[in-house]
Nucleic acid binder design. Structure first.
Lengths: 191, 191
DNA sequence: ATAATTTCATAATCTAGGTCAAGTGCTCTT
DNA sequence: AAGAGCACTTGACCTAGATTATGAAATTAT
């Protein structure tokens, strides 16, 4: 359970009482693969800190084609940030890719934590900042790199979970069809 | 000058003394079109709140092709967030598109404001949150929409400054070549 | 004003990546 | 153990968008 506390400790130092509060206001839960934690149109009332397993977020376009937005493995957070922050219906699905153990933090409890442990304002601000930076970088990468280069970056970012990801999901994340991805991989192996 | 204060007031309420501090720690500056405020490799030590005119950020890829990352017009912030937050060399250029009047906030003064006016922690957190949301949405749009649909979204987001933007920059922002963009526009006019 | 530079349009050709379709092996039921 | 469904591959064909090139119009500098 203290993986979350360890993670917080990387950015701010809490007293034992403050750590106590964090433990009390979060909850460890386990989910089987294929469980859907959030659907399009839902309001995202909780965020997930992954201890074990893999989560995945995606949207469906007007042709019902799924587009993977992100994966989260151990020590990553997952939520539909738009919906979570605005408390309005979002467009993301969040699904369990591999049997998972996650720490659940409700929006409500996060607000409580903000007032009871103000240092956490700083912690979450840093999280959001990092998330923003990662997003901007990915946007730039999508604009400037070819599918092959994007795949290369992907393998670096997610190498620890690579063998667990179906390649149609990887294809979707980097923005190509599964057919093209399959061909591309075959081409890369020849080199 | 109080456009910034008005903007802050949308999210947090400051006392007169606090507003005083904000005014003292920021500075109004004017820049001619084509001025380069930040270059690739620089450390971004200040962020800009636009009062008048237009700023633009972009990267150059390995073939020296420019990719527009964003535009900022009145009441928008502009910075290389990666570099600004991490204080490490960034990859963005920031250039003045149209003669501009901007409020400059240095990283240093922002830190001062955080400690002198803690409410601003909240203000800037909200800014970053909104920025993250906008970015994620754009990423999803790029993955799910065609160039034509992306152009449509662009005109909605930037309609107020549309006539001032060279179309090669618009093309770059939505991720197509100027030639293709020109033909696409001609095609759209026929409808 | 005039030269120089930049922007925009149009056309011909090319290619990264998409679509549709068929077939092979998996895994998961039951 | 048999079938139903997925995930992946491969092939033939298609298209959105890139590239290269050329010239006209519009800005900018001299």
């Amino acid at each position: 359970m203290n993986l979350l506390l360890k993670n917080i400790a990387k950015h701010v130092t809490l007293t034992e009482q403050e750590e106590e509060r964090v433990l009390l206001l979060t909850e460890l839960q386990t989910f089987k693969a294929k469980t859907i934690l959030l659907k399009e149109g839902d309001i995202c009332t909780q965020s997930y800190f992954v201890i074990k397993g893999i989560l995945r977020s995606y949207t469906r376009d007007e042709n019902a084609v799924e587009h993977v937005v992100n994966f989260a493995c151990a020590e990553w957070w997952m939520a539909d940030m738009y919906s979570y922050l605005s408390q309005r219906p979002g467009q993301l699905f969040i699904e369990v890719n591999e049997d998972a153990e996650v720490i659940v933090l409700t929006r409500e409890n996060q607000e409580k934590l903000y007032s009871e442990v103000p240092k956490l304002e700083r912690f979450f601000r840093i999280l959001i900042e990092n998330s923003l930076i990662a997003n901007q970088r990915r946007l730039i990468n999508n604009l400037t790199f070819t599918a092959e280069a994007r795949y290369d970056l992907f393998t670096k970012k997610f190498h620890s979970i690579l063998p667990y990801l179906p390649q149609k999901q990887i294809a979707s994340y980097i923005g190509v069809t599964p057919e093209f991805f399959s061909r591309m991989k075959a081409r890369l192996l020849k080199k």
